[in-house]
């Protein structure tokens, strides 16, 4: 019997990645809310014992086969969830080439889209200590363009997903940054290929939304 806990902040983009992965891959976890506002629970010693850098999301618990050590950060949680879902779920990579392409896009989501996450946090919650005061949308725009160019070529060859012929955790890792870009004033209108892909993601069985991501459209 597995019993997993996801340490979660509902409005955080990376935590949405983790919740979406759990929902789409059909892995059940209890949500434990971490108050990152006034209480700053991410800095509490009890949470730092799990996630030494205070990083969200974090996943921990017991799986069918043993204890799951604490896993911190969206990319790590996504990989863990795909493994936990098992090969029959269709979410684990099927071959080496696909695994490598998925790794490529997971890395893109972590580095190139970091600008998108910063921009959204700044727009919604105001500046924090690690924000310089000259934030622009240029790096975010550039990252979304790379995704748009890729998905345009994919659309032309009749494909719907970033890698292979079915959705992978690469799609889950990339989806929130595009879906939430209206939070900081970028429009979906400039990215028709990403909008088409977004509709496919929203149509997946088990899809869940978050504030800022409408279920429709």
């Amino acid at each position: 019997m597995s019993d997993l806990v996801l340490y979660d902040d509902e409005l955080d983009e990376d935590c949405y990645r983790a919740r979406l992965a759990l929902a789409l891959c059909g892995v059940t976890a209890r949500l434990h809310a971490i108050d990152v506002t006034m209480a700053r629970e991410q800095d509490a010693s009890s949470f730092r014992a799990l996630s030494p850098a205070g990083r969200l999301p974090a996943l921990q618990g017991v799986t069918g086969t043993g204890d799951l050590p604490a896993i911190c950060g969206a990319a790590a949680v996504l990989r863990a969830v795909a493994v936990l879902a098992g090969p029959a779920s269709g979410w684990a990579p099927v071959d080496t080439g696909e695994a490598a392409s998925v790794a490529h896009w997971l890395s893109f989501a972590e580095y190139e889209l970091a600008a998108a996450r910063r921009l959204r946090r700044l727009a919604l919650f105001g500046p924090s200590a690690d924000d310089c005061d000259t934030q622009t949308s240029t790096p975010t725009h550039a990252a979304l363009r790379v995704m748009e160019d890729h998905m345009t070529l994919r659309r032309i060859s009749g494909r719907s997903w970033f890698v292979g012929d079915r959705p992978t955790i690469a799609d889950i890792a990339l989806f929130p940054s595009f879906a939430l870009c209206r939070d900081y004033g970028l429009s979906h209108d400039d990215y028709p290929a990403l909008r088409r892909w977004q509709t496919c993601v929203k149509g997946l069985p088990g899809f869940i939304a978050m504030p800022g991501v409408p279920e429709y459209g």
Binding site: D189, R195, R196
Partner: peptide
């Protein structure tokens, strides 16, 4: 205002 294929049935875009 749009490429026809970028506006699938039952969808909306801004222009």
């Amino acid at each position: 205002v749009a490429l026809g294929l970028d506006l699938p049935p039952a969808s909306v875009t801004g222009a």
